[in-house]
Design a protein around this nucleic acid. Structure first.
Length: 455
RNA sequence: GUGGAUGUAGCUCAGCUUGGUUAGAGCACCGGAUUGUGGUUCCGGGGGUCGUGGGUUCAAGUCCCAUCUUCCACCCCA
């Protein structure tokens, strides 16, 4: 049999022990903050029925779904006549009825509807699981990545938006990572579209506006024009592009600009409410009203939130917003939800780049016992047991090989102490303890060693 | 899905322009100097179907085509 080169699929990654340490650090912080705010954990399957996923993420999203081939002889059931002329979607439906989850929000909506009679509303849940997208990989962009979601469902109160912003603030404070939290409201965007008389083009308009700081005003105007927005409407957008000032000034401007749009005014008043709640209990991060913030997802209906690292250029680290009727499509109408999603993989990349991971040496093995042979091992095993009972992470080298090798193992593993117990030590009931950092070694009793390792 | 770059030892890369001995370096690994002492030093060693497949040629790591990977931009997004 030919030897095959080991490989993993495009856009996926292995995680080494070192990397897992950093990832667990991230998950632990996020999980703890979620818990602190009263969110409860759930998990859902890696795969969902394709009918649950299709059509929820727009046309683009459907293309990025990983579909799972049916098991059994699925081709036998397939009507192949004229297959090349059939639309791809209809063929897919015949050979794949399941797909890998694309995010955690839609499976959550499905979960809520399916378990509505067991759930205590308003329901606050958190979920930390991988998701899969058949996207083209790039930096900070993978085909398998972890999302850490917190959503509240069944409450219209803007206190929820406020709490989520607090969660974001607290998480990034725990990472000591300076971020800027951007907030917008879909209703404000709808209002703007209404004012310029292009209500039905809201998606094209917001997508174009979203690129403002990336491609500049000139090309945004070109794109709007290309999408069939009239020159007159574009002219009316001008003041929006030129909007300046702090959050308060921006709100004042929008109030004025949107006074003719009911939905627009509603958006402004929602934003005002969130800002006023924050002013009562301020956050450490910068909070900025950014009307260019659009988010592609079509299910947001109210607040839109995005978090960017201040010093590192990578996509957003966290995104979220309010969706008024996500569960409607599964048969539970009029339930409003609001949620956020942290991108653990991007946070990892940023923390690594800015050197923000703590070196937590206490987590590792504290002491390694050198193995000289059976007699010594029999003497060491009870001591090892006692140490572990005391909560000291400790190891015995499994093979009785050359000491150089055993010392090298301790060195490579960054184990701070090596305990040497040979014939001589057994005779005098002492332990030779070597400090690997300083190179010093001393002869101590077991109790002395324990005290040293505990301190 | 579109466009550009990339791939040589476990890792980081040189060699490719102008085809021609046995494809190199550093780091890592293994052994010895040092049989109860690592990290430093010295000496020695193993490791490559040059991403894969095809083509041109007397001869291909080097030129051509295809394909895949990774990276970058677009699209979209965590």
């Amino acid at each position: 049999m030919a030897i095959q080169k080991p490989s993993i699929p495009k856009g996926t990654r292995d995680f080494s022990p070192k990397e897992m340490e950093g990832r667990n650090f991230i998950f632990d912080i996020i999980r703890n903050v979620f818990k602190k705010y009263g969110f409860l954990p759930i998990e859902t399957p890696a795969m969902e029925n394709l009918s649950t996923l299709m059509g929820k993420y727009g046309e683009e999203g459907d293309k990025l779904l990983f579909k799972i081939l049916n098991s059994g002889n699925y081709l036998a059931k397939l009507n192949t006549s004229g297959i090349s002329e059939m639309p791809l979607g209809s063929v897919t439906q015949q050979i794949a009825k399941r797909g890998l989850r694309y995010d955690l929000t839609v499976p959550f909506a499905r979960f809520v509807v399916q378990h509505r009679n067991e759930i205590n509303f308003p329901f606050k849940r958190y979920q930390i699981q991988p998701v899969w997208r058949a996207d083209n990989p790039q930096k900070g962009r993978y085909r398998e990545f972890f999302q850490c979601d917190a959503d509240m469902i069944g409450s219209n109160s803007l206190i929820n938006e406020f709490e989520l912003i607090k969660v974001i603030d607290e998480v990034f404070e725990d990472f000591s990572l300076p971020v800027i939290i951007k907030i917008n409201n879909r209703k404000v965007l709808a209002g703007i579209s209404e004012i310029i008389g292009e209500s039905e083009k809201i998606v094209d308009i917001t997508v174009a506006i979203d690129k403002l700081d990336k491609i500049g005003i000139k090309r945004v105007l070109e794109e709007l024009s290309a999408k069939g927005i009239s020159d007159q409407s574009i002219k009316m957008l001008q003041p929006v592009f030129e909007m300046k000032g702090n959050n308060d000034e921006k709100l004042k401007f929008l109030e004025d600009y949107l006074s003719g749009s009911e939905i627009g005014m509603e958006g402004v008043s929602e934003l005002r409410k969130v800002f006023s709640l924050i002013s009562i209990d301020p956050i450490a991060s910068e909070l900025e009203l950014d009307i260019t913030l659009a988010r592609g997802l079509n299910y947001y209906t109210g607040a839109i939130i995005e978090v960017k690292a201040k010093d590192v250029s990578i996509g957003s680290l966290c995104g979220g917003g309010r969706y008024d009727d996500l569960t409607g499509i599964f048969g539970l109408p009029d339930v409003s939800g609001v949620g956020i999603s942290f991108g653990a993989d991007r946070i990892y990349d940023v923390l690594l780049q800015t050197d923000k991971f703590p070196d937590d040496e206490k987590q590792h093995t504290q002491v390694l016992f050198v193995n000289f042979g059976d007699r010594e091992v029999n003497y060491i095993l009870p001591l090892l047991g006692k140490l572990r009972k005391e909560g000291i992470n400790s190891e015995l080298y499994p093979d009785s090989v050359k000491m150089k090798k055993q010392m090298g193992y301790a060195d490579n593993s960054n184990i701070p102490y090596v305990a040497i117990i040979g014939e001589h030590e057994i005779q005098i009931s002492e332990i030779t303890l070597k400090n690997m950092k300083s190179g010093d070694q001393q002869t101590v009793s077991f109790e002395e060693m324990l005290a040293l390792l505990k301190g």
